[in-house]
């Protein structure tokens, strides 16, 4: 079942050229899709269109059977949680616990449930000892973990991670990736917006965006196999893959080594 369908989507900002052009994409329920592209490829714009923060010039977005328009936008937002790149832009609470509660309060969760979930999700992101602290005293990674706890606690069907790990340290990034795997395994549909192929390689499906157009949709294997598209995408390739390509060019015939580098690229 498709939980998100995007048909013939076009968008441009006022007085700017086309940002997104002819986007067609379906996302199945429970799927983890990464949208991979450079800064300026239109990938964050796409996520803002899906939650109705921006309005498309043309085309259709259907979320869980509802066509996005002025009447449905609030119902659709209840289905989608979004974690942004910069955690400072999403802080509203005086303390960490207020902040985690905010989304749930908007969804009118009962008070006892809110309290229970603050406890559960703050522990899950290892921030339970910080509940009474002010968010501005936290480091960037800690703030992002709080933001994620607030979104997870809302229990939405879909969560978008819009470059949510790009400002974190390696440990913080790996932790967030682990949460993503965990919630995805529990049936939540996940969209990760990223420029990091290392991160995208974990998802079920990769969508490569370049200059507002979809260059390729495929499994990580299909994408890594498509050397021509990868070169055209200008994305930073994974190091083992780069080495593999160079060895191929030098006509080195070592299938064992090639396979090893291929598996490393796929993070196996």
């Amino acid at each position: 079942m498709n939980i998100i369908e995007i048909r013939d989507l076009h968008f441009h900002y006022v007085e700017q050229e086309q940002v997104l052009e002819d986007i067609n994409l379906t996302i199945e329920k429970g799927e983890w899709v990464s949208v991979l592209g450079h800064n300026g490829s239109g990938k964050s714009t796409l996520s803002q269109l899906i939650i109705g923060l921006l309005k498309a010039d043309q085309g259709e977005i259907i979320v869980d059977g509802l066509t996005l328009n002025e009447d449905t936008v609030y119902d659709i937002r209840k289905k989608i949680g979004i974690v942004f790149q910069n955690p400072d832009n999403q802080f509203v609470g005086v303390t960490v616990e207020d902040d985690i509660a905010f989304g749930m309060e908007n969804l009118c969760f009962p008070r006892e449930e809110i309290i229970r979930r603050i406890d559960e999700y703050s522990k899950r992101v290892r921030m339970n000892e910080y509940l009474k602290k002010e968010p501005h005293n936290l480091s960037g990674g800690q703030k992002q973990r709080v933001a994620i706890a607030g979104i997870l606690a809302m229990n939405t069907d879909i969560i978008i991670f819009d470059e949510a790990t790009s400002m974190l340290d390696p440990k913080g990034r790996d932790e967030i990736l682990d949460y993503i795997k965990e919630i995805n395994a529990q049936g939540v549909t996940v969209i990760t917006i990223t420029h990091d192929m290392k991160e995208a390689i974990h998802s079920d499906k990769i969508v490569i965006l370049k200059e507002g157009k979809i260059l390729k949709v495929g499994t990580p294997k299909e994408v890594l196999n498509d050397k021509a598209t990868l070169n055209a995408s200008n994305l930073e390739l994974l190091l083992p893959l780069k080495l593999m390509y160079q060895l191929e060019e030098s006509k080195i015939d070592n299938p064992d080594l090639k396979d090893y580098l291929w598996q490393l690229s796929l993070n196996r």
Partner: peptide, 11 residues
């Protein structure tokens, strides 16, 4: 302070 965080590899 973290001048390159959030940028893609080319940036």
């Amino acid at each position: 302070d973290e001048p390159t965080s959030g940028l893609d590899p080319k940036g």
